[in-house]
Simulated scan of single mutants.
Amino acid sequence: MSHPAATTRVRSAPGTVGLISNPSSGHNRGQFEHICKQIAQHPLIHHRITRSSADILNVLEEFAALDLKILAINGGDGTVSAILGELLEKRPLPALPQIALLPGGTANMNAGDIGVRGSLRKAVDRFCQWSTTQGAGGDIAKRALMRVVIEDSAAPRYGMFLGGGAVIHGTEYAHREIHSRGLRDDFSLALGTLRTVWGVLRDDPAFNRHITTTLTLDDGVPATHDSLILTLSTLHRLAFGMQPFWSDEPGSIRLTLMEQGCTRFARTFLSIVRGRPNSNAVPASGYHSHNADRITLQMSGNLNLDGELLDVDGQIAITASPELEFLRL
């Protein structure tokens, strides 16, 4: 059984609102001018545009002088991870603000779980209206991020979703065959997932590549698996409502691993992503789910961290960050 969503009904304290937009993110392209006009009608929002990751720290330092209480992000999962990574790693603000996520990217998995609902224009309008009332309505959801350190890498990375094995090939297919045709959000991810499942069932080498993974949870004993699907996240709900984690163990990072050769794959996979794992979803059948605050992977292959492809050949250390408060509207 997955953890219940950690949300509470609150009225946020009044304070300065800052918004960072990435105009290159999926849904921003083609309608960013209109979005900017929407935001400009609400002078309480301090809107800044970043065109590369090098701009992020300067904007956050500018916001520090404004005594920021709410930080909104208009971009995709990668933009969110880059901004929150700088916020957590560099600590440019005197205190961590509440975070509001707008679905400006292609997939918007993070915003789908803990962000502002609706299409980008509707979400921006809802957030702008909320900013004038300073907290009328809305929930606060608490989530950590994963701090990811690759062996011999210069700097840590942050993210809320990490996937390997068939996840990589499904992502590649979605970018090549689905997103390129203008399909985005949950529908595109659902199509990519279904195509991945079909590829695994047909033993298609384009989708059925697996990786040898040695996994250590917190201070536990390392265990090696031939991993078909590897998923880690601090989110409670993934794309199109998937809830593929069922462990009741303590820990902010949630992990599901399906081994190569896992039995009754199609039926068990569908039960897992619906959040109702069937009786076959057990380690003896090749299905594992755990929660932890520290996870170490030893592997050689690719991982998808919130849309960024990581090439790993050695050890990767994953720890849970302090929790942030996310405004859900």
Rank of each mutant, 00 (worst) to 15 (best):
N291V: 04
F326D: 00
V282Q: 08
L309S: 06
G275L: 07
G78E: 05
G137L: 07
G85V: 09
S81G: 13
L19M: 09
L66I: 09
R264P: 02
D248G: 12
R121V: 14
P156M: 08
A266Y: 14
P222N: 01
H210N: 13
T216H: 03
A95W: 14
M146Q: 03
G241K: 03
L183R: 12
D219Q: 09
D306Q: 06
G301P: 10
S53E: 15
G159T: 04
G159D: 04
E308Y: 05
R264K: 14
L191E: 11
R51V: 13
G159R: 02
F187G: 11
L305F: 05
I83F: 11
N108W: 06
P14D: 06
V10L: 08
H288W: 09
G115K: 07
D306V: 05
P23S: 04
L162N: 04
Q31I: 15
F326H: 00
G118N: 11
L228K: 00
D248I: 11
A284H: 06
V221S: 06
L68C: 04
K90L: 12
A72L: 08
I318M: 01
C36M: 13
P250G: 13
G30H: 15
L228C: 00
F127L: 12
R181H: 15
V200F: 03
T106F: 04
I295T: 02
V282N: 03
L101Q: 02
T319W: 01
R237P: 02
N302P: 08
W198P: 00
A206W: 05
V221R: 03
P4Q: 09
Q129R: 14
G76R: 01
Q260K: 15
I20N: 01
